[in-house]
Design a protein around this nucleic acid. Structure first.
Lengths: 344, 344
DNA sequence: CCGCTTGCCGAAACCGGTTTCGGGCCGCAA
DNA sequence: TTGCGGCCCGAAACCGGTTTCGGCAAGCGG
């Protein structure tokens, strides 16, 4: 069922049918309706590749997932893909997915651009200094970052408000009587890390507290390193009464470190983390965490990218979305003695 | 950089260049090489959509993920996608991903076929009676199942040998002194369930054992239902000394059910499950499980689908891959008394 | 009544490839 | 020398759309 078939059925030419279906202004209203109905009735769907060749648009969002990141546990990938796919499908677009080792990602983008398999890209896990950004910017390709880049010039981006979440985490812990609060970050290469730490500092400052230098650790990206970081913090002369983790995966390692010192999470030590990893719900006690709506994030990114491809300015394509606090057992109130008289 | 540019550079016509690059037999060897080098040097890459329009092939694998399955935790989706993408990329193909609610998947396939966004499909999570299979078979679309279908006629498929894994699980447990072994299955709609149960039965039969009817439960797809199933089994007059689960997620629920009865997994109760879920490694004791190489599975499926699109017969496109046993603490030897004198 | 817009559609070029067809040139046998 | 068959390549059709251009007919003002 091609456009010529539809045209023949109506006694029109294919050019006229094309213009009618694409809402050109030089088509009579009656003709437009007649054409639309006939196309519907005959089950006509324009061939993507055929339009692409003339318009230069294949109406596809490109997504390149970087492999080789062993710590990159992605429990939400399906939700994220569903969001992207829904957002794309709502406008008749599709999703082209490729994977590549971290180093070779650039080539993959290049290939997708050259063969016009995608009109633009959603860049997951944006790093502060990201070669993908400079490359795509140079080539004039359309893209939207998920996360923020060191130099936002020419970048459209979408991000979860990790700073706001951490700021509120500080407020919550302060309200529950904590004064000595630690922070365990993830990989410093990613923007989220700085955002979350800054947010926590801001929240503490709001309450007249600060983040002691010895209570700040970085690079905890999995259970093992989270456990090690926690062990280090708990060995201090004056250990923290609460720890805020940048990542759930690291926080889940804290349970064992605490247990080894005879401490019970949620009673002797408060923990708040970030990601809303479903594993956290099964910890004992369940892990309090900031959860992200990955589906909505995907849909929003898809919308933004399509707008960008259609010519919207990057300055108008920047947005954040709040995270939601899952107030679970690990963050419950801890009856602490005066921190000044405790342990030291 | 189009094919005409390359032709002009060489003083040939675009038709000749096209034939040279596609290894037509009526092109002189010298011309072929000269053309190939020029294309390489100029960085020419044929436009996917342009070839698609004439050849009818867009060199893309379609993958439709079904959402709305809340129990469909997919910790390996990234590995699977990477495998598919690698297998596709090795032959110059790409991967088109879409998602759809379970009921609406058919429409999504239809759309991808009509707009020729994919030349064929990999069908994940095949059900025994799967509407996708009948639909694609009727339309003459190319596809490869991941899992098996009730009626394999006209189907190419790839599957993990869950039956073999379960059979070996039976052997292992029997060798470690277990005689009263239970099976907790997942969703009966999927072929894997029947395969795994049958494999277990076969393995028990090999050792002169059988699966008592009261020791077979179904529908445990998550922690909660796994916990409930375990509780039910442990309340029997003569409870099992070992439980084999079709799914890791369900097995992880067993730990709590055992603990509530004062039983310790790996000492009082042996557990073997299936999937190789990374969460299992962090259980106490770690969960013994059959792990699947999702990356290789993806690559194999991609290869098979491309062969199918290129005209291979479905009968030649059927294969299984073994799972690997992760012999961890939950399956350790349990010193049981004679089952006949115990508990009853 | 004439000329000039305006609305609407047909005709044809075009996009970047692939594939078919036909013919020039060469070598070889008669 | 002529005829014939291969080897190569050019020319052009083709795929299914989009977009430009030109022209016919109706409407309108002068």
């Amino acid at each position: 069922m091609t456009i010529s078939d539809v045209a023949a059925e109506l006694g029109l030419t294919k050019g006229t049918v094309s213009r009618a279906l694409n809402d050109y202004p030089d088509i009579a209203e009656g003709t437009r309706l007649r054409t639309r109905r006939a196309a519907e009735r005959l089950g006509y769907r324009p061939l993507g590749s055929a339009q692409a060749i003339r318009t230069g648009r294949c109406r596809a969002i490109g997504l390149v997932l970087e492999t080789d990141e062993h710590d990159a546990h992605r429990p939400f990938l399906d939700l994220f893909l569903a969001g992207l796919s829904d957002g794309a499908a709502a406008q008749g677009w599709t999703l082209t997915v490729a994977t590549a080792p971290v180093g070779a990602a650039i080539e993959t983008y290049q290939m997708l651009i050259d063969e016009r398999k995608a009109d633009g890209f959603v860049l997951p896990r944006t790093r502060l200094n990201d070669p993908r950004v400079t490359m795509l910017r140079d080539k004039g390709a359309a893209f939207v970052l998920f996360g923020r880049h060191g130099d936002p010039d020419g970048c459209a981006w979408f991000d979860i408000d990790g700073a706001g979440a951490m700021r509120q985490a500080a407020h919550i812990l302060a309200a529950r009587g904590h004064a000595r609060i630690a922070y365990v970050g993830g990989s410093p290469d990613y923007s989220y890390n700085g955002e979350r730490e800054a947010g926590l500092r801001a929240g503490l400052a709001d309450k007249g507290l600060d983040l002691a230098p010895e209570l700040v650790l970085h690079g905890a990206k999995n259970r093992e390193s989270g456990e090690a970081a926690t062990a280090e913090l708990l060995s201090l002369d004056v250990p923290p009464t609460a720890i805020v983790f940048a990542l759930d995966r690291a926080a889940l390692g804290a349970y064992r470190a605490a247990a080894q010192r005879g401490l019970v999470v949620g009673r002797d030590l408060a923990i708040i983390a970030y990601d809303g990893d479903p594993d956290g719900a099964y910890a004992e006690p369940p892990l309090a965490s900031w959860s992200v709506d990955w589906g909505r994030a995907g849909t929003t990114l898809a919308d933004m990218l399509i707008k960008r491809v259609n010519g919207a300015e990057v300055e108008d394509l920047r947005a954040t979305m709040p995270a939601t606090f899952l107030d679970r057992g690990s963050a419950s109130v801890i009856p602490t003695p005066d921190p000044n008289t405790r342990g030291g």
